[in-house]
Each structure stands twice: as C-alpha cells, then as structure tokens.
Amino acid sequence: MRFSAVSVCLALVAAVGSAGVAAGTAEARPAGATSLYAPSAVVLSVGKGEDPATATMQRTVVLRCSPSPYGDHPDPVSACAELRAVQGDFAALTAGPSGVSCTRIWDPVVVAADGVWEGRRVTFSRAFGNACMLRGSDAHGVFAF
C-alpha cells in the first residue's frame, strides 16, 4: 500500500487537530492586550550558596498577583500583599533589619525573583548568612516556601 505525501499530511493534521481538541487547547488569540490588569507574575527561588549564579536552588514556586493572587506559593494572598506594600521592590522588601536573634553560623541562603511586576521586568537576588536571617527579614512571607 502506497501513501501520497498529501494523504500523510492530511492524516497528521487530523490526528494533531483531534488531539488538540481532546486536550482542550485554546484558540489562538490576536496579539495585543487581553486583560485590564498589568501582569504580575514572578518565579521565586530559594537555594544554598553565596552567589545566585552558582547557588543550588532547592525550592522554586510561581506567584501571580494580577488580577488576583494565585500560583503554587503556599500563601499567595499574603505574599502578594507584601509585594504590593513595597510596589514590587524586592530590594526594599529585603532591606529591613532582622528582628530575630540568629546564630552566626555561616550557611548562606540565596533568594531570587525573576518575572514581571505590574508590567515591568524584575530580576532580583540576595544572599543571607543563613536561613534564620532570611526568616527574620521582611521578605520572610514572600520567600516562605
């Protein structure tokens, strides 16, 4: 049995098209704004090491805050509220002095954020001396996962 190139292409298109419908794929949308809200979605990471470029990331979550908080962050509502309070400025969020007494054991922890906050690109990272110092910072809720 011999197949022509056209019949093979039609069979592939039919198979892919029916698989896409079965999988629930959405129709293509035209380019442009599709929401009234500026996007706010960041990937947050916590890892071991001194330098974000070489740290071993141990946990990573996605936090979306517009139009409403959701994602796989354990408490997206509180995390989004903390970020809104500083207008998405991660440096301001992590700048406050720690109100917690921590040991001076050097076991560095790196936090990182990469994504979009209210339509503008954000990239941030900071190292803390140890996990206790991170928990004592104002960024505790955002990076608590």
Rank of each mutant, 00 (worst) to 15 (best):
A79S: 03
P69Y: 07
V42K: 05
F90M: 14
T60G: 02
V46S: 08
T60C: 02
R84Q: 12
D72K: 11
A92F: 02
A91I: 05
P74S: 06
T34K: 08
A38E: 00
G49R: 02
D89A: 07
R64D: 09
R64H: 10
S78Q: 15
G96R: 07
A95T: 09
G99W: 14
P97H: 00
T60W: 01
S68Y: 13
P67S: 02
S66Q: 14
L93I: 01
P76I: 01
A85D: 04
M57N: 05
A55Y: 04
G49T: 02
A38W: 08
A38Y: 11
P74I: 02
P76F: 01
M57W: 11
S78M: 12
S35T: 15
S66E: 15
A95N: 13
V77T: 06
L44H: 11
E82D: 15
T60I: 01
A53S: 15
M57C: 04
R64S: 15
A38Q: 13
P97W: 00
P69S: 11
V46R: 12
E82F: 11
L83R: 12
T34G: 15
A91L: 04
L83W: 10
T94L: 09
L63Q: 10
S40P: 07
Q58Y: 04
T94N: 09
E82P: 00
D89P: 03
S68Q: 12
S45N: 10
T56I: 02
A55K: 14
T94H: 07
S35K: 12
V46M: 07
E50M: 13
S66V: 08
D89K: 03
L44N: 07
H73C: 03
Y37W: 13
T56Q: 11
C65V: 08
S78W: 03
P76M: 01
T60F: 01
V86L: 06
P67V: 04
S98K: 07
A91W: 00
A53L: 12
S68E: 05
H73F: 03
V77W: 00
S68G: 05
Y37P: 01
P97K: 00
L36A: 15
K48Q: 14
Q87I: 00
Q87K: 10
D72E: 04
V77S: 05
S66K: 06
V100C: 11
A41E: 15
V43W: 13
P69A: 11
T54W: 10
P76K: 02
C65W: 10
A92R: 14
L63G: 04
A53G: 10
P39A: 13
S45Y: 09
V46Q: 10
V62H: 03
V46N: 06
V77F: 04
G47F: 13
R59N: 13
V86H: 06
P74K: 12
R84Y: 07
Y37H: 05
D75G: 00
S98L: 09
S98F: 08
A79H: 07
P52W: 05
